[in-house]
Design a protein around this nucleic acid. Structure first.
Lengths: 344, 344
DNA sequence: GTGAAAGCGCTAACAT
DNA sequence: ATGTTAGCGCTTTCAC
């Protein structure tokens, strides 16, 4: 005998399937009916078929989260936050790792139409016109984690990279650093561009000159960070600021390999304050761009959207105006940015 | 107008819903019919409703992966591997972070009955009688990543911790270490127990005596590793072996804080060879227990199960005997276990 | 309070 | 080759 259904229960309890449904959903029923049904269900080990429920109810109680790379601690932090909000609200989480492939991200957006999940949180690393178009035509509620061009009618949660970078640069400046090198990620990503922008602005605010030779652009990983820093060392920086923790860790490696001490000879700072920041020695000063907070807010926005969508079904079909919130950055100071050694 | 369905397409194309279904599924149809349907579908932006399909077809093309903690790089590695196999086979991935709470794990097992996903990969950190019972009564295919008591009719993939520990201990021995401290995880977890066992055995194989004072038990994280190592330092170890990379990283931190050099004064080795192993300085020697491999194999086993389940539906209802495979460990040597300084 | 029946969107017999 | 129809398991009117 395969899976029990309400039919098997109805037969066993000697009632109609409607009564079974009512009892199982906690609607009114006579005590003896209730009891018969509950007993039958328990004996049969009945579990309601969620697919049938979804088809009838028009919703799956599933949420989708699509991000570039599940191997990156930043996105892991988001997953945790989203998972926790979703779970609390009775939703499951469907995961997509898109490898930042645009075509994959668009496919995910399109797949909203297949009704597999009730809503989508999308975290693209770059946003193309195709994205914007797909977002306009999305078949269900979407929240974007990232910076959207204005005018796109979609909720979004953004990080404030510019302010974040400023926090770190000013901290380095205030602890006596004057030659602050910057190892950045690719220019064709939103984070890469924003962080570069923030760096120039922050230098200016501190009254420091922008020196192109103190800036490197490379991929967002440890190896790349080490290689780039290696090359920058000729410029005699007294601090290296990595556009994410991996880059900073790479910088630390390059410095160690050269026999330079952190922070006595060169200070190091990173961004994201991921688990990696505390993995090495000395522990890294890092700017928390609020991955956890952004994940949490995105999930909450999405849930609110879903609620209002359900309300609108009966009521006014008005769509609430899209919301954009920005998570504030936070500087976490650790040993990698202590004072420079006084050159007595 | 809400989502288009095959009905809207049929009306627009002037054919029956059956023809629409056929065309959309690539079954035979006259060219002009095909064309009319495809055009209508495109114009309407039709996307098949996966829920309805699932209800009809009895499968969702979704897989579930439940693990203790999405924040742990070991499980992240599994997620990546599973995701990749699943995607290739046309399945989506549903994720559950159980926080190693037994009740949660059992709930996931029970929820197999709701037909939300076609199969489950479960990675419990400890296995209770309740687990075994739930596994026996599972409503669908399950693959366990972990060590199952024999006799449980479920596919499983296990790590060989004992051999893995031996690899590291022997390596330390061969590079001249004789006082090899071991910082282990909790005794009430399967990994914790196995690794402790392996350590004793490995010492014996090297002809070293087991000294209880060189062993610490604590939680599987960096802080705990640092604290435990701190306490072990009185015993003057010449190597510290952590039962995972976090523990080893904690050990490294404690050593750095005491001004001890790695590896000149004390060697450090970890387990799992997660991303963390390469995050610090010096990079950690670590034993790869094959998280990626285990995830991959688990996914493949599950897919095979699903295939044979579908075959059995028409044919013999025989269940293939459960398979258990073991992923071989692999030692990755890095700078943290170089030779000791000669005390010339 | 309870049962009969419709219908969610789709696929697959079956009939034409 | 195409149309008609039943039915996947469930919720929800609608009568009684």
């Amino acid at each position: 005998m395969p899976q029990p259904t309400i039919i098997s229960i109805a037969e066993r309890a000697g009632v109609s399937i409607a009564s079974v449904s009512r009892v199982l959903n906690g609607l009114g029923a006579r005590p003896d009916t209730t009891e018969k049904v509950e007993r039958a269900a328990a004996e049969l080990g009945y579990v309601p078929n969620a697919v049938a429920r979804s088809l009838k109810g028009g919703r799956t109680r599933q949420l989708t989260f699509a991000m570039p790379d599940i191997g990156n601690p930043v996105y892991v932090a988001m997953v945790r936050a989203i998972q926790s909000v979703a779970k609390a609200a009775g939703y499951r989480l469907l995961l997509h790792s898109t490898d930042a492939v645009v075509e994959d991200e668009l496919a995910v957006l399109r797949s909203l139409g297949d009704r597999t999940s009730d809503g989508l949180i999308l975290c693209p690393i770059r946003i193309t016109d195709a994205h914007v178009e797909a977002l306009r035509g999305a078949a269900g509620p979407v929240v974007v984690i990232g910076s959207l061009p204005s005018g796109v009618p979609v909720d979004s949660v953004r990080a404030d990279s510019v302010a974040g970078v400023a926090l770190a640069v000013r901290h380095l400046y205030e602890t006596g650093r004057r030659r602050i090198a910057f190892v950045n990620g690719p220019a064709d990503t939103v984070p890469g561009r924003k962080r570069g922008e923030g760096y120039r602005k922050a230098l200016a605010d501190c009254g420091l000159a922008y020196e192109p030779d103190l800036v490197a652009r490379t991929d967002f990983d440890i190896e790349a960070g080490a290689a780039a820093t290696e090359a920058l060392l000729d410029q005699k920086p007294d601090a290296v600021f990595g556009a994410n923790d991996q880059l900073a860790l790479g910088a630390a490696r390059a410095l160690h390999a050269r026999g330079l001490r952190i922070p006595q000879d060169v200070a190091v700072a990173g961004m994201d304050d991921s688990v990696l920041a505390q993995a090495g020695w000395p522990p890294l000063t890092s700017v928390d761009l609020g991955s956890t907070e952004r994940g949490k807010r995105a999930a909450e926005l999405l849930l609110r959207r879903l609620d209002s969508a359900r309300a609108a079904a009966d009521d006014t079909p008005e769509t609430p105006t899209p919301r954009t919130t920005t998570a504030p950055p936070r500087l976490v100071v650790r040993a990698s940015t202590g004072r420079a050694a006084t050159d007595s």
